[in-house]
Design a protein around this nucleic acid. Structure first.
Lengths: 114, 114
DNA sequence: AACTATACCTCGCAGCACTAGGTATATCAA
DNA sequence: TTGATATACCTAGTGCTGCGAGGTATAGTT
């Protein structure tokens, strides 16, 4: 019945997309490439991950999609909305919190309390 | 039908446990508390997460369990094995890679390549 | 004609983390 | 003594995320 909290380490694909789209409008296929490149192959998210997230972000009003024809191919460009910027800063905060907790715990200097 | 890769952001509970047990032997309930405390409440993993992971780590030979009676209660202490230390450094490497990629991508200084 | 790259899409699944329950003993307050 | 809280262990079931694998279509290259 009741809705469950999402796993504590999820939503990173969403965060990455919003972060990239904060800089400029991009289309799905381009975002897939960019994430691979910008992370030096450390993070590779396939189209099967990216497209559904983009659709969800559009449905929720965080992004606005615009179809554009280029060289006979159709690209769907995404532009961040005000709601998207809000969502981004929220996710960034959450992630920063998790990350600093994680670094605390993983830091070899930190010793485990009794 | 082959085996699928695990999601790219998973295995953090395992990593945390191994990291804590690298310092000293601990028991399950204690590990639950420690993770909550050491991360300043940023990461809270319940017993439903911790115990199954501990059992899996024991089965795989990364940990060795020892039952110890204290005050009429039974505690199961876990000690890291050589295999566990190997597993830890492997996970640490993987995580560091992911994390630096992530920081690259999320850093506002980084600009998205064309 | 075959192959690669671009560019979009979605179904179905695996596996992870989580919730929600269960057992049992010790301690302390009402 | 009854109830509540803390300690300490455990597992069955499930929601959801991310993923793989496939599909469509056009353009360019071999």
């Amino acid at each position: 019945m009741g809705q469950t909290n999402p796993p504590f380490m999820s939503g990173i694909p969403e965060l990455l997309l919003l972060r990239l789209l904060a800089q400029r409008d991009m289309y799905g296929y381009e975002l897939v490439r960019s994430i691979r490149l910008i992370t030096g192959e450390a993070i590779i998210l396939g189209e099967g991950v990216i497209y559904p997230v983009l659709h969800a972000l559009e449905r929720s009003g965080a992004l606005k999609a615009t179809r554009k024809a280029v060289d006979g191919r159709t690209r769907v460009y995404y532009r961040m909305t005000a709601a998207g910027r809000k969502r981004l800063s929220r996710l960034q905060g959450e992630w920063q919190r998790i990350q600093s907790g994680l670094n605390m715990a993983l830091d070899p200097e930190t010793d485990v309390p009794t």
